[in-house]
């Protein structure tokens, strides 16, 4: 029997870099990436080439790039930030990506996400790092169809898929 009108999909790996640093590092990164890294937590910017920078807090970003690009970008960023306080770490395998879409996506998410995801306060393009189903997630409201991206630490990937299947089920 069908449950909520949603589909749950595990997506392929992406390249991810964890970027930390002050204003100097942020500027150096922004210049190299041609993305202005936001300084406000729970914001994101999407570049023309599809790269996404999630702002975790004012000195902390998660950069999502095409898989395979991460090491080159990491090395270039290291060069651009030489002598500046920073920490850039490859975390491509730290995160797993899951996509939730369908007309009742919000009904499923609201079973496990305690933050307000009403479109008035969490419109398309929003992101937030928060708890969900007893673990940490980075939620991204991708588009109005509606589609949500869910990042989880990779050891929790199967748990989150099982949890979403449970939350979407009719039993």
């Amino acid at each position: 029997m069908a449950g909520y009108d949603v589909s749950i999909e595990a997506l392929a790996n992406c390249g991810f870099l964890d970027l930390r640093g002050g204003d100097d590092a942020r500027q150096a990164c922004s210049e190299y990436l041609d993305i202005v890294l936001p300084t406000c937590a729970n914001k994101l910017v999407t570049a023309a080439n599809g790269r996404i920078a999630f702002c975790i807090s004012s000195n902390h970003w998660l950069l999502q790039v095409a898989d395979g690009d991460q090491m080159d970008i990491l090395q270039s960023l290291e060069r651009s930030s030489a002598g500046v306080s920073h920490s850039f770490v490859d975390v491509s395998d730290l995160y797993s990506r899951i996509q939730l879409s369908g007309s009742e996506s919000r009904d499923v998410l609201a079973q496990g996400v305690s933050i307000d995801i009403h479109p008035r306060v969490f419109p398309p393009g929003s992101t937030a790092r928060t708890g969900m189903a007893k673990t940490t997630t980075q939620i991204h409201y991708v588009n109005e169809s509606p589609t949500y991206g869910i990042l989880v630490f990779s050891s929790f990937r199967q748990h989150m898929l099982d949890w979403l299947a449970m939350a979407a089920a009719k039993s």
Binding site: V89, D90, V91, D93, S154, S155
Partner: peptide, 11 residues
């Protein structure tokens, strides 16, 4: 001047 990044699931 130290940054900690937990990376358990990376490896």
């Amino acid at each position: 001047d130290v940054y900690l990044t937990p990376v358990s699931d990376q490896w």
